[in-house]
Amino acid sequence: MLNKIIEYIHRDEWSPYIAGILLGVVGIAAVGISNNLLGASGAFESLIGIIGKAIAPSIFSNTYFNYVVPSEITWAVVLLIGIFFGGGLGALTSNTWKLRVQDDEQWKAIFGPQLWKRWLILFIGGIILEYGAGIAGGCTSGLAISGGMLLAPSAFLFIGSMFVSGIITALIIYRGRY
């Protein structure tokens, strides 16, 4: 039994149900232990608030960075740092940790092999994602999963609209290959 569990941990990819149960338990623990919700997008705003206030305090001392999002090392920032190491730990257990670029075959089939193209699209995608998460009130974790588990209507509005525009975007990019 124990051997089987250890062997499973070393696998590269788990059943999404098993991984989902793990995340669900983590979500319960976050509320039970810390009375906090899991999330990712808000931590970027706290971090940039800290950096921005150090470099250009006159620009970053606005309502948003002063009152809406605390410009300090919050619980969510520590969680985000944990996510970074957790991804690394997962890759180490399956022996897939490696410094690399451009490792997705499907990406290359659709966008081609140019690295600048990948980096440009990831950069622009990051801006779009973070801005959308700001307007919506959270991202896939902070709103969709954390809000959904509490049965907040906002989460289901977000999931629905995210799928609508995601499907349309994929249709436009993939066209005949959708």
Binding site: I127, G132, C139, S141, S161, S165, I167
Partner: peptide, 27 residues
């Protein structure tokens, strides 16, 4: 509106805030 913007970014880049950070940790 936020969800609609978010979905465009997610289908375009193939990640979201949490998975980007976890993927960065994988190298």
């Amino acid at each position: 509106i936020g969800g609609l913007i978010f979905g465009v970014g997610m289908a375009l880049a193939g990640y979201c805030p949490g998975t980007c950070v976890a993927g960065a940790g994988e190298g």
